[in-house]
C-alpha cells in the first residue's frame, strides 16, 4: 500500500470528520438533553452556509475579514433560529410521542428548502475559496490546504470546549442534570424551560458553525442539508446517542473510513456508513459511548 496516499486519505478523512462532528455534536446534544431528534438540524447547517454566502459573497467580498465576520455572526444567528423553532413549534410536541417530533421536523426540512430557494434562488452558489489566500503545505504530490488544517483544529477545539463546558461549568452541569431528571432539577429551582432553549440554541449554533465551516469548501444548493443529516444520524448512532465523546468517535470512524473506502474499496463507499451503523446497532445498540438508560426510558 502507498503510505503517502494512506496518510493523505487519513488527513482528508479528518477534515470531513471535523465537519461531521460540528453538526452531529449539536444533534446529539439536543437529543441527550431534551430527547428530541431534530431532523431539521441539517436545514440549520444549510442556513449556516447560506448566511455565510450572504456575508462573504454578497456583502463583503471574499476577503479574510469577511470570513472572520461570517464565523463570528453566523453561528449565533443560526442558534437563535434554532431557539425560536424550539419556543414556537418543537416545544408543543413534547407531550406527544417522538414520532411527532420527527414528523414536525421533517415538515420543517421541506419548508426550509423552499424558503432558501425563495430567498437565494435555486442555482448552486460557490464561496470563494479561503485557501486562495491561505495557501497550503506540500508533501510530495499531495497538498494539505491550510483551511483544511484549520478545520481539523476547529473540530478538536470545539470538542474540548464542549467537554469542558459540560464537565467543569455550572451551567453545563445543570444541563446534564436536566437531561437525567427533569423533575428533580426543577425542584431544585432551575428553570428547565431555559435549559431547553439554551440547549437548542447551543445545538443549532453548532450546526450553523458546521455550515459556515463547510460552505467555503463546498457548493451551496437548496437541499444540501439532506445528506449531512443522514450521515450525522449514523455518527451519533455509532458513537452513542446523547454523548459528545460518542459524536467525536462516530465522526472519526465515518469520516476516515469513507475516505479510505474511496481510495481503496470504492464500491463500498455508498453503503459503508450504513453497514457500520447497522452493525453497531445490532452488536451494541447504545453505541460505542452511549448510556443504556436512553433506550429504556
Amino acid at each position: 500500500m502507498d503510505m503517502g496516499l494512506l496518510a493523505a486519505q487519513v488527513f482528508n478523512g479528518l477534515v470531513y470528520s471535523s465537519i461531521l462532528f460540528l453538526v452531529s455534536s449539536g444533534l446529539t446534544l439536543i437529543y441527550g438533553i431534551m430527547n428530541v431528534l431534530n431532523l431539521a438540524h441539517g436545514s440549520l447547517y444549510m442556513l449556516g452556509a447560506y448566511l455565510g454566502i450572504t456575508i462573504v459573497v454578497y456583502a463583503l467580498g471574499g476577503t479574510p475579514l469577511a470570513y472572520l465576520v461570517a464565523f463570528l455572526l453566523v453561528p449565533p444567528s443560526v442558534g437563535v433560529v434554532g431557539a425560536l423553532l424550539e419556543r414556537t413549534l418543537i416545544r408543543r410536541t413534547y407531550p406527544m410521542g417522538e414520532e411527532y417530533q420527527l414528523l414536525l421536523t421533517f415538515g420543517l426540512i421541506l419548508v426550509f428548502d423552499d424558503l432558501v430557494k425563495m430567498v437565494w434562488g435555486a442555482a448552486y452558489i460557490n464561496f470563494p475559496d479561503p485557501n486562495s489566500f491561505l495557501g497550503g503545505l506540500r508533501f510530495g504530490v499531495y497538498t494539505l490546504p491550510l483551511y483544511h488544517v484549520i478545520l481539523i483544529a476547529l473540530g478538536f477545539a470545539v470538542f474540548l470546549g464542549l467537554w469542558t463546558f459540560f464537565s467543569r461549568t455550572f451551567t453545563g452541569k445543570v444541563m446534564r442534570a436536566a437531561a437525567m431528571d427533569r423533575e428533580i432539577v426543577e425542584a431544585m429551582g432551575v428553570d428547565v424551560n431555559r435549559v431547553f432553549v439554551s440547549s437548542f440554541f447551543l445545538g443549532s449554533l453548532l450546526s450553523g458553525l458546521g455550515g459556515i465551516s463547510a460552505g467555503p469548501l463546498y457548493t451551496a444548493s437548496p437541499g444540501m442539508g439532506t445528506d449531512i443529516i443522514v450521515y450525522s444520524f449514523a455518527v451519533i448512532v455509532i458513537g452513542g446517542m446523547g454523548s459528545i465523546g460518542g459524536a467525536m468517535a462516530g465522526s472519526l470512524i465515518v469520516g476516515v473510513l469513507r475516505s479510505l473506502a474511496i481510495s481503496f474499496y470504492p464500491q463500498l463507499e455508498i453503503v459503508i456508513v450504513f453497514v457500520i451503523m447497522a452493525a453497531v446497532l445490532l452488536v451494541k445498540p447504545t453505541g460505542l459511548f452511549g448510556r443504556p438508560e436512553f433506550e429504556r426510558r
Binding site: 493523505a8 486519505q9 470531513y16 504530490v141 463546498y218 449531512i228 469513507r258 475516505s259
Partner: peptide, 29 residues
C-alpha cells in the same frame, strides 16, 4: 460535497490528463 479523497487518489496515480464527467454543482465543487 468533499472530493479531497478522490483528488488525492488521482494525484497518487500521477496522470497527465484528467477526464471528468461531473456536472452542475459537482463540477464546480
Amino acid at each position: 460535497e468533499d472530493f479531497s479523497s478522490y483528488i488525492d487518489k488521482m494525484l497518487a496515480y500521477e496522470p497527465d490528463l484528467v477526464f471528468s464527467s461531473l456536472w452542475g454543482g459537482d463540477a464546480a465543487t
